[in-house]
Simulated assay, not measured.
Amino acid sequence: MFRIHQDNVKPSKLMEYEAIAKEFKAAASKHNVDVSWFTAMTYDNKYFYVSPIENFASFDERPFAEMAKAMGDDFTDLFSRFDKCYDSHGTYVIVKDNELSYMPEGVDNAPADETYREWYYMYYKPEDAKNIRDGMKAVRDMFKEKGSKMYYRVYRDGMGQMEHYYMVSAAFKNEIDAAQKNEENRKLLGPDRMKTFSKVLNYVSRMEEQRGVMRPDMDYSPKTD
Rank of each mutant, 00 (worst) to 15 (best):
K187Y: 04
T39W: 02
S169G: 05
R81T: 00
E114W: 08
S36K: 14
E163S: 13
R156L: 01
A112Y: 00
M194E: 12
L100H: 07
A28F: 07
E114K: 15
Q180T: 12
K69E: 09
E127M: 07
F172W: 09
L188F: 08
S205V: 08
K223W: 05
V35G: 03
P222G: 02
A40T: 11
L100G: 04
Y123W: 05
E61M: 09
D97V: 06
A65G: 00
D113A: 04
K173A: 05
K149D: 14
K181D: 04
F56R: 02
S88P: 00
N32S: 06
N98P: 00
K46M: 14
H164N: 15
V213D: 07
I132E: 07
E66G: 01
P63C: 05
K69V: 04
M15Q: 11
W37K: 05
K125V: 03
A171T: 09
S29Y: 06
A112E: 10
K149Q: 07
Y86A: 06
P104Y: 01
N182V: 05
F56K: 03
D128H: 13
M142D: 03
T76K: 12
M150H: 14
P126Y: 05
R117C: 12
A21E: 11
N182E: 15
S198E: 08
M150I: 00
E127Y: 01
A110N: 06
P63I: 04
F38R: 15
